[in-house]
Amino acid sequence: MNLKALPRMGRPLLIILALGAWAGLAHYGSAGHGNPDLSAALGVAPLILAAALLWPGRSPGGMLFAAALALGLVGLLWPRLRESVPLLYYIQHLGAHLALGIFFGRTLRAESTPLITQLAQAMSATELSARKLRYTRRVTQVWTGYFLVNALVSTLLFLFAPREIWSFHANILSWPLIASLFLGEHLFRRRILPPEERPGVGEVIQAYLRISRTQRNPASSTPP
């Protein structure tokens, strides 16, 4: 094992461990067990973070204001939140999947460029081939469908299945499902596209970050 790689592996490993711990505690709490205050706090934490990150412009002051506003609202609703922990986690899971489904799906409109196509264009120095344009549009459709279908499955399980089954699906199974979809798309891409049209994971992440920065600050992408 390359010891020099350990520092680089440390941060992703810590993130994975933190997500795993959060998923386990969320499953335990949303199934109706554990301390309701701790379970509710874990449930609202991602919502407060989302409120800050979705603040228009994403200025530090605006993000802090959004987080403070969300915290104030949580404080007002706390008695009800701690008494409705499963519903809180359901709203969180449903909201995240609907938001992601809309985020991907709105780029499939006729006047828009599919999100995966945008990523591919950000990584390519030349014009994308017709084959890759078709492929990236299909992948965008697949991710849109996944998020919307999973939101529907979550709703059906929450309404009609035992709480433990819904909680396992929402808090534990969602991560392996996403990883499986990533892996399946990667394997399918290797069969469909030639090597020069298959980017690595690192390139995809860098392209997404570039697109995010451009969307937050369009002026920064325009040369002086």
Rank of each mutant, 00 (worst) to 15 (best):
Y146V: 00
L209D: 11
F160Q: 07
I102G: 05
F182E: 00
Q92W: 15
I211Y: 08
A26E: 11
L81K: 03
S84K: 14
N2F: 15
L3D: 03
A21G: 10
E197C: 08
M63W: 02
A66M: 03
G101E: 10
P56C: 10
L73H: 00
V153P: 15
M1F: 11
A151L: 06
S129D: 01
L13F: 08
A151T: 05
I165R: 11
T113P: 03
S112G: 09
A21K: 07
G202T: 04
S220R: 14
S84H: 15
I48T: 00
H93M: 12
A96K: 01
R11E: 15
A179Y: 02
N2S: 13
M9K: 07
L159W: 15
I48F: 08
S212I: 07
L77D: 12
P199F: 10
L49K: 00
T126E: 14
W78S: 00
A122T: 01
G184Y: 14
P7M: 09
R198E: 12
W175F: 13
Y90D: 00
W166V: 01
P86V: 04
S129Q: 04
Q141C: 14
L119I: 06
H169P: 06
G24V: 03
V204C: 11
P7L: 04
A110C: 08
S174Y: 15
R210W: 02
P36R: 01
L100Y: 00
L49H: 01
R138N: 12
A67L: 00
G105V: 09
L177A: 05
H93Q: 07
S174H: 10
L42A: 11
H97C: 12
P199N: 08
R80V: 02
A96M: 07
F168L: 10
M63N: 10
P223S: 06
F65W: 06
I102D: 05
L128F: 05
S212C: 02
P224I: 01
G29E: 08
I211L: 15
A23F: 07
R191G: 13
A120L: 07
F158R: 02
A96P: 00
L14F: 13
Y28K: 03
A40Y: 10
G184D: 08
L128M: 05
L47N: 05
R189T: 05
S167Y: 09
P176T: 02
E127N: 02
L193C: 04
F158T: 00
L94F: 14
I205M: 04
A52D: 11
L69C: 06
G75C: 12
G145W: 12
W55Q: 13
I116H: 14
L81V: 03
G29L: 11
N2V: 02
A207Q: 09
A50R: 12
A45G: 12
L77A: 15
R189E: 10
L193W: 12
V204H: 03
Y135C: 09
I211F: 07
